[in-house]
């Protein structure tokens, strides 16, 4: 039903191998740090894509939920709670607050949800900068401990005091999230997300509880954002209001749209390609958002499925051309 052609699978395996071997061929600590951040961004952007791309609900508070995860882990681990408990609890808090926001707003169609989430994102950002007792105000929270080592029988323990350890932790979570999203999206249940995006009145009339579907998608997306934020706090050792800011939301949006909305690889590609590209184009720094703002408009008008969608279309065209020329080999790809 939902199988992929063999050469696509090989490509994914090659990418996975490259990701696993990354610490060996990226010795530069600074670049390595950027790549590790990209893994976290990819997690959060994938969560946003579930809501925005697959379910068609424009959430503009994703940075806020990332921030809740980050502050959650920061506050709890500083209070002595072990990271491995603080992380899921923080993500659950983000999911729960997402539920509270979604309950009144997802009942409506169209613009309300986008507007309310945008405003909510700003509220969280303002509160994180002003609630000094809880968040440390504009200075934020410092000295967040790294995750404690995991003991492994007969082997010793897995430590996270190095950047490499954190990288593998982040990578593991990214793979887990992608695996879960893969299962959710490529299934009959996942089709209901797309049904809501595509034609809500029809979805309603064939017995799909569209309100509940939107809620599930939004809460799951917020949970994923919280997860990414929690790991960010442990990795950076510090959080400040910019980790909950609305600019972060716009960055996630850029990753999702330019990478490819409603495709699983899209946000991941965006989250890796864009920050790395920016490092090589430091001289453009002032013009960064000027370029990305214009790109966002152009991509959404001319390539609504972004880079990955464009490549897929190209791939289909090539396959169609091949079939025309060599009718025997039929590698129809999807």
């Amino acid at each position: 039903m939902f199988t992929k052609p063999i050469h696509t699978k090989l490509l994914y395996l090659a990418i996975l191998a490259a990701a696993l071997l990354l610490p060996w061929y990226v010795p530069d600590a600074y670049i390595f740090q950027i790549v590790t951040m990209s893994v976290l961004y990819a997690i959060a952007a994938s969560g946003m894509n579930l809501i925005l791309g697959f379910t068609g609900q424009v959430t503009l508070a994703h940075g806020a939920f990332f921030g809740m995860g980050a502050y959650g882990v920061a506050i709890m681990t500083k209070a002595g709670i072990v990271f491995w408990l603080a992380l899921p609890v923080s993500a659950l808090i983000a999911a729960f607050i997402g539920l509270l926001i979604g309950l009144p707003t997802l009942r409506t169609r169209g613009a309300y949800f986008a507007i309310v989430t945008l405003c909510f994102g700003v509220i969280v950002w303002i509160v994180s900068g002003n609630w000094i007792e809880l968040t440390g105000g504009h200075n934020g929270i410092f000295g967040i401990p790294r995750p404690s080592p995991i003991p492994v029988p007969f082997f010793g323990q897995i430590e996270f005091f190095t950047q490499t350890g954190m990288y593998y932790l982040a990578l593991a979570v990214l793979l887990l999230v992608l695996f879960a999203l893969y299962r959710l999206v490529y299934s009959v249940f996942g089709l209901t997300f797309m049904a809501v995006r595509n034609n809500e009145p029809l979805a309603d009339s064939v017995g799909i509880n569209t309100y509940a579907t939107k809620l599930v998608s939004f809460v799951a997306g917020c949970f994923i954002a919280g997860l990414a934020g929690g790991m960010y706090a442990a990795m950076m050792g510090a959080v400040s209001p910019s980790a909950a800011g609305y600019m972060l939301t716009f960055n996630f949006l850029i990753f999702v749209i330019l990478g490819g909305m409603a495709t699983l690889p899209g946000p991941v590609v965006g989250a890796f390609a864009i920050p790395v590209l920016m490092e090589f184009m430091q001289f453009l720094d002032d013009y960064r958002m000027l370029i990305f703002g214009a790109l966002l408009i152009m991509v959404i008008i001319y390539f609504p499925m972004g880079l990955v969608g464009g490549l897929r279309r190209l791939n289909q065209k090539v396959a169609a051309w091949r079939q025309q020329k060599f009718p025997e080999s039929d590698h129809a790809s999807r």
Binding site: F189, L191, I208
Partner: peptide, 13 residues
């Protein structure tokens, strides 16, 4: 056909 089934979030996950 979905509403006839039990294909919810956890079952799918």
């Amino acid at each position: 056909y979905k509403w006839r089934t039990n294909l919810g979030f956890w079952n799918t996950l």
